[in-house]
Each structure stands twice: as C-alpha cells, then as structure tokens.
Design a protein around this nucleic acid. Structure first.
Length: 450
DNA sequence: CGCTATGATTCGTC
DNA sequence: GACGAATCATAGCG
C-alpha cells in the first residue's frame, strides 16, 4: 500500500484519495469502498506481475525515488510503531521445538550403520583391501568387501548430498538475509525477525535433510537385507571339514554332544568360514563374536547329523564304518596308553580302511576295561573324554566286525546308534547304557533293528 | 529338470 | 538356552 501510495503520489501525482475517487462501476454489488480496495489490490498485483518486465534501471530508479521521498521517514517510523505492536504477537508463537524423534532415530541408525559419523577405514579401497587382507580365500571376504563398498558408496552419496543441502541452505539464508537487509531500508525488520526467518529456512532444509536421511536409511536396509539374503545361501562345508566333523561324531557316537570348547575346537579345525557363521544378524548373536557364531554352525551340523543319523541309521552305516575304522588305530593306541594295562595286546594289525577286517584280540577284556573307563569318574577329565571317544570308536568297529561277539553272549553291547527306547541318545554316563554284558532288557533295543 | 544331500531356520519342549 | 523335529531352501549330481 505504501508502494502504491508513494508511487501514486510520486509518479502519477495522485493523492491517496485519488484512487478512491474513481467513479463507481455501473453494476457494483458492493459499496464504492470495496471496489476501491479491489482496485488498489489490482494495481498492486499488476505492478508485481509487471515488475519483471521493468528494466533494472527503471526499478532502481523507482526504488531510489521511494527512498528519497520526503514522506518516507515519517511513514517509516509509523510502520515501525505498527510493527512494534503487531510483532509482539508473532514472537513467542514458535519456540524451539524439541528434536524430532524420528530424525533422532534416523540419525542413530545412520550412525550405527557407519553412514554418518567418523569414517571407518576410509573409503571403499581401504575397506576392500582390509577385507582382502583379512579373509583371503574365504568367499565371505568378497561378499563383505562388496557390502563395505556399497555402504561406502551410499555413505559418499549421503555426504555429498548433505553437503549440497547445507551449501544450498547457507546460500539461501545469506540471500534471504541480504534481501531482508535491503528491505529493512524501506520497512522495519528486527533482528529477531531475521532470526526467525533463518529458523524457518533451516527447518525447511532440515525437512529435506530428513528425506535424504530416510532414503539413505532405506538404501542401507535394502543393502543389508540383500547381503543377509546372500549369506543365507547354503554353502556346503569343505570335504575336510565334513570329515573332521564326521570323525568327531562317529567317535563320540554314544554321546555326540560336543561341549562348547569342543565345538570351538572343531570350528577352528574345520576353519568354518565366517560366511558360514554369519547366518543371522550378528547383533542377534552373542557378544563373543565369531567364536559363538562359528560354534553355532557346528551345533547346526551336529543337530542335523544327530537327527538324520537317528532317522535312518541304515543309511549312515557305511559312513559310520568308514570313520570308525579310520580312527580305530589311533583310538586303540591311545586307549592302550590310557588304560595302562599290562594285558594290552594292542591291535597292531589294524588293517585300516577295511572295516570288516579290523581284529581285536582279547576283545572281551579290552572291552571290560573300557567299560570301567566309561564311568562317571572319568567324565569331564581330558583322559576320560579321550577314552570315551576311543571307546566309542572301538565299540563301533567291534560291532561292525563282529569280532567281539564271542564271549559276549550275542548281546550287542555296542549299539551303533546307542539309542534308547525313546529314540534318544543314551546318556553315556548312565550305567545302564553300556554296562554289564548280561543286562537283559536294556539291550533289547540294540542294533538288531539294522 | 528332478531328486537327494545338506546347511539353516523355526517351533515346541524341557 | 540346548535340543529334537519339522521344514525351508539351495547345492550338486545324474
């Protein structure tokens, strides 16, 4: 309105009333006053719309004219007064709003994923190099480096975009502030107002940032799920690993439940790759890290093995023979040493490889000795554990060869599955499982089912 | 391409 | 939390 007024006075020589003095339109429903205001607004709009058509010089000249107008200081002070009064109502309407919880969540996630925050390792090249150095043959290192590379890519995009936004925000803020400063010559603008305006701009930009963060989070989630899916893929163990696990399984057939330590040892021996152990979100696993993950793979294997062995013992018989024979020699030797028995006519002619040819002289005595070692007193001790495994192996071989059948009254003391009537593994420590050869009902369940 | 083997996952139980 | 059982899903073979 001031513009209109001043422009009117200055350029057209009209007074304020000049505008109002226009003749009323012939069919006006509203009063003359309303139409006059309409006209005013129309003029202003027109001026605004045509402002781009004006040349810069023209606009500058107009501005200059406005600034130099004799009424300007007076009008300016009036405006200041009005502003002082109305500005108060604006102030305090918008206080510092609390941090957006969703934004905080996004920030936290980006931080946790290593997208925001300090750079780790520094770039994809470093990540790839680190992965290559750490893993070597493991295919997981490839996957892992791939994941890292992709994450780094996301990270880079995120930071570039963020920087762009920040730059744009700063530029825009500066621009607006310049504009306001410029405007403050013709209208009163308090620093508070500038501050508020800056706040508004920042909020606008932060909402854009939020979108960026959100889409970055989504990208990370997608990458993550894809990576996890890839890890879900089943990888067969290496032959050696399967062999080692099978050896343990068949040599501990009476109690194929490896302890945590044994699992760890087996995992180490089998060099279970991390990719095989990263089946679940690592966060879900224990804090111990890869050890626990790898032993869980071993647990999986034993769980599967137990159930499948039990389900179809016949199918595994050959395999059992193979592994039993494989370990028979060492087992026999070790048992001989462990037992420290004078009467150890140690099986020096193992004929390894052929399960059917393994011969055990004095098998009865040997067996009895082994029985005694199978007691509780040895459980838990290293010797006990060793002996237990060797006992298992020997028993198995014995059973397969039938070499012990004489003198044991046909009671097959070694059941290849050592399963009780319920289908579960007999507890090796319970006397009833393997004790007296003369046991009656207890042995009924034995391998005749084969 | 179908089938089997096998590693992983899920669910219920103890 | 470990385990068994069932199931899923893929590797690998013929």
């Amino acid at each position: 309105r001031m513009l209109q007024t001043l422009a009117g006075v200055n350029l057209a020589g009209h007074s304020v009333q000049g505008g109002m003095a226009l003749p009323p339109p012939p069919h006006g429903h509203e009063g003359a006053d309303g139409d006059g205001r309409k006209q005013d607004i129309g003029d202003i709009l027109h001026q605004i719309m045509t402002i781009t058509d004006q040349s810069l010089d023209e606009a500058q000249a107009k501005k200059h004219a406005l600034n130099c107008h004799r009424m300007k200081p007076a009008l300016f002070s009036v405006l200041c007064e009005i502003k002082e009064k109305t500005g108060l109502s604006i102030r305090g309407a918008q206080e510092e709003d609390p941090p957006d919880p969703q934004l905080m969540r996004l920030d936290n996630m980006l931080l946790a994923e290593g997208v925001s925050g300090p750079e780790k390792g520094g770039g994809s090249a470093a990540a790839a190099a680190a992965a290559a150095a750490s893993g070597g043959s493991s295919d997981n290192s490839i996957e892992h480096s791939d994941y890292r590379a992709k994450l780094t890519q996301i990270r880079q995009i995120y930071h570039t975009e963020l920087e762009k936004y920040e730059q744009a925000c700063n530029e825009f803020t500066t621009h607006v502030m310049n504009l306001l400063r410029e405007q403050s010559r013709t209208r009163p603008i308090s620093p508070k107002e500038i501050e508020r305006m800056v706040g508004i701009i920042h909020r606008k930009f932060s909402s854009i940032q939020m979108q960026l963060k959100q889409s970055t989070c989504e990208a990370v989630m997608i990458l993550r799920s894809r990576f996890l899916d890839a890890r879900r893929k089943r990888r067969n163990f290496s032959k050696q690993a399967t062999e080692i696990l099978n050896e343990y399984f068949y040599s501990h057939l009476s109690n194929p439940y490896p302890s945590e330590e044994a699992k760890e040892e087996l995992a180490k021996k089998c060099s279970i790759t991390v990719s095989q152990s990263l089946v679940k979100d690592p966060k879900e696993r224990g804090s111990k890290g890869s050890d626990i993950q790898q032993t869980s793979v071993v647990s999986n294997w034993f769980g599967n093995k137990r159930i499948r062995y039990k389900k179809n013992i016949g199918k595994f018989q050959e395999e059992a023979n193979l592994y039993a024979a494989k370990t028979a020699v060492t087992a026999a030797h070790a048992v001989a040493a462990a037992v420290q028995n004078n009467q150890t006519n140690s099986p020096t002619t193992p004929n390894s490889g052929s399960s059917g040819s393994f011969n055990l002289p004095n098998s009865g005595d040997m067996f009895m000795n082994m029985q005694s070692l199978n007691g509780d007193s040895y459980q838990g001790s290293q010797v006990g554990a060793n002996v237990q495994s060797q006992v298992d192996t020997l028993r198995h071989v014995i059973n397969q060869t039938g070499g012990y059948s004489d003198g044991l009254g046909g009671n097959s003391l070694y059941s290849p599955h050592n399963l009780n009537a319920n289908g579960g593994w007999q507890d090796a420590t319970t006397p009833s499982s393997v004790t007296s050869p003369t046991e009656g009902p207890g042995s009924v369940h034995s391998d005749t089912s084969n």
